Simulated assay, not measured.
Amino acid sequence: MDTLRAMRYFVRVIELGSISAVSREEATSQPNVSKVLRALEAELGTRLVERSTAGLTPTDQGMRFYRRAKGVLEEYREALDEARGLTERPAGLLRINAPVAFGQLRLNGIVQRFMSAWPEIEVELILEDRYVDLVEDGVDVALRLGRRLPPDAIARRIAASQRRLYAAPAYLERRGTPAAPDELAAHEFIRFAWALDAGTLPLERGGESVQVPAGGRYRINNAMAIRDAMIQGAGIGLCPEWLVDDLLTSGQLAPVLDGWSAGAQELFLLFPSRRYQPLRARLFAEQLEAEVATLPGFA
């Protein structure tokens, strides 16, 4: 029996929840996957999954074996990558995951320059705001904004951008410009839909800090849509400088309560939970760190 193949089939059966999904992924038949799983159970002398009309459920022994088997497969992949890296050229597919707005406004240009420098590297840029399992989704490098990271993340902080208040000049002409934090309560505030500090806004200036109410009827779960709403005069928004730098330069937005901020939004570089990184991923990470430091709105 090909033990590594059997372990791979078993691990994916647990993760995908069905034999048919694994057979499609492995380009083989369902009976073949079932046969391999039965052979693995026979070799181990224990039942790994319970089969029923509702699907497959791992037994207690199966879950313990799944955790160990997944670790063994990751170690095996590391060993292969490391061996290949001894003679590796910067080539192949690089999968990058990043937040939507950052990808559109800042990352796309960096990726284009990277591809020009390394013509044998292909790039798949996946833009989404949700957290993904880097190993399971085959991601080589990920970028995340904010301090809330997965507990097992292998992350490196590479930059930060101050979060400040902005609004369109037309909105400020219509509603007036706040002169102090407590005047924000009389204004429309465009909020991120899943903000943890809903209803209040922490602001600081020098050594002074305040918590002010920040009410508003409009909540959005996308940074690009928040930009657009602010341009249209829907209200005051709290944004990192990198997100609105171009709009400040063009005069489409203006700062509100200059000198006050809500702290920095941090940018992290994330890697899969394996020690070795392909050369293409290491080269991209190096270029990314060097270029982000020069982008408008980042420090």
Rank of each mutant, 00 (worst) to 15 (best):
A79D: 08
I226F: 01
E122M: 01
R274W: 03
Y218E: 14
Q61E: 12
Y218P: 01
L80T: 05
A262T: 03
E183N: 03
K35M: 13
C239P: 00
A214Y: 01
L145N: 02
S273P: 13
A186I: 01
A198E: 14
E208P: 01
P296L: 08
R282W: 00
D133P: 02
Y166R: 04
L107N: 06
R8K: 13
L201V: 04
E208C: 03
R282C: 01
L56F: 10
T53L: 12
G71V: 02
A229T: 04
V256L: 10
A101P: 10
A264D: 15
R174F: 00
I154L: 14
L73V: 08
I190R: 04
D137A: 14
G138R: 05
V33S: 06
L283A: 14
A79C: 06
L238N: 05
A185D: 13
E289Q: 15
R95A: 11
A293D: 13
Y171N: 08
L247H: 12
R219F: 05
V292T: 10
S261C: 14
V36G: 03
R24D: 12
W242I: 05
A225P: 01
V11F: 00
R144V: 06
L44N: 09
G235W: 07
V13D: 03
V11C: 11
E50C: 00
L48N: 09
Q104G: 02
N221V: 08
L16G: 03
I231P: 00
E50S: 09
P255M: 09
G85Y: 04
R282T: 11
A234K: 12
V11D: 03
L203P: 03
A179K: 14
G176A: 04
E241K: 10
D129R: 04
A42T: 12
D246K: 07
G263F: 06
R164Y: 02
R280F: 02
P119A: 14
E266P: 03
Q287F: 00
N221Q: 13
R68L: 12
L56S: 03
V135D: 15
I14P: 01
L93K: 13
P58V: 09
Q287A: 12
L295Y: 02
I96D: 09
E124Y: 04
F114R: 11
F268Y: 15
I121P: 06
A117W: 00
L269K: 04
P178V: 02
F102S: 06
A98I: 01
R157N: 13
Y166K: 02
R64E: 14
G176V: 05
S273W: 00
A264T: 07
I220T: 13
A281T: 08
P181K: 05
S161C: 12
L267K: 07
E74Y: 00
E204C: 06
A254N: 07
Y218D: 07
G71S: 15
